[in-house]
């Protein structure tokens, strides 16, 4: 049972981390690229400069990344492969169901981020999919134009100008940052749908939901991993760009 005290502690933690992170700029300073060489393609996207992230815990993160990789290959992936006995539409329905459970907290996060339209849309999705969508197994909301746009508390904090802090690869959890991991914990702790569930039950739901997601994925992780000269750097870069894109949406 997640008690009020737990919630309060989490909120305090969130605020503390927010303070710690400060407003670490994640945008890399663009050095003045100026070239007179006509042959050279001057790739200088001034509107979207490359994003980078501080990584003071690189040794820990690399160990953690290696652990998660093994966890994925030895445990998660074989289970997900087993799940593929279920026809894809069935797994898609389960994926919809788990995704629907996250809609209320997504709406709250959007509201806190000052995005009332997005919040209303996520709430509308939850109401429609939970009823007409038979407990969320189907997604009629998308068909009526309410397209999923998930928001988490990490994004909310970003909208307050809080930077990533630094990159963090969390065992069992994956790529994150000080800000986003805190936001992620708070997101599942504050989710009204999970309010009456034990922590173990929340972890169970998360695990099953992860397995369903992996079973629907077409070995993307492996393809990127195998062809990269340094997979750790590849995924760090892709992760931070992906988060930046979600925040700027």
């Amino acid at each position: 049972m997640l008690r009020a005290t737990t919630l309060r502690r989490l909120l305090t933690l969130t605020l503390l981390v927010a303070g710690l992170c400060g407003t670490v700029a994640s945008r890399a300073a663009q050095d003045g690229k100026d070239t007179k060489d006509e042959e050279f393609f001057d790739y200088d996207d001034k509107e979207a400069p490359a994003v980078t992230i501080a990584d003071p815990l690189e040794s820990f993160n690399r160990a953690s990344f290696a652990f998660n990789d093994q966890l994925y290959r030895i445990v998660l992936k074989p289970v997900a492969r087993g799940l593929r006995i279920l026809p894809e539409p069935v797994r898609t329905s389960f994926s919809n169901f788990f995704s629907n459970l996250g809609a209320p907290i997504s709406a709250i996060s959007a509201l806190l981020a000052g995005e009332p339209v997005n919040a209303a849309s996520e709430l509308g999705r939850f109401l429609l999919n939970s009823t007409a969508g038979l407990l969320g197994f189907f997604d009629p909301a998308t068909e009526v134009g309410l397209v999923k746009d998930e928001e988490d508390l990490g994004q909310t904090m970003a909208s307050y100008g809080i930077g990533h802090g630094f990159y963090l690869v969390v065992p069992f959890y994956g790529s994150s940052s000080l800000r986003d991991f805190t936001g992620g914990l708070a997101t599942s702790a504050l989710n009204p749908v999970f309010r009456n569930l034990e922590t173990g039950e929340v972890i169970g739901i998360t695990a099953i939901s992860t397995e369903v997601t992996i079973s629907l994925d077409k070995d993307t992780y492996e393809a990127f991993y195998e062809s990269a000269i340094d997979p750790y750097l590849f995924f760090r870069s892709a992760w931070v760009q992906n988060r930046e894109g979600k925040i700027n949406q």
Binding site: F41, Y43, A50, V51, T52, A228, I229, D230, L233, F234, R236, S237, A238, W239, Q241, N242, E244, G245, K246
Partner: peptide, 21 residues
């Protein structure tokens, strides 16, 4: 010359990965 998939630019990702080497 570049493709962004889910906001991650191919060029930026390879650049970040190759830079240390």
């Amino acid at each position: 010359y570049d493709v962004d998939i889910e906001n991650a630019s191919m060029v930026n990702t390879y650049r970040d990965m190759y830079r240390p080497t």
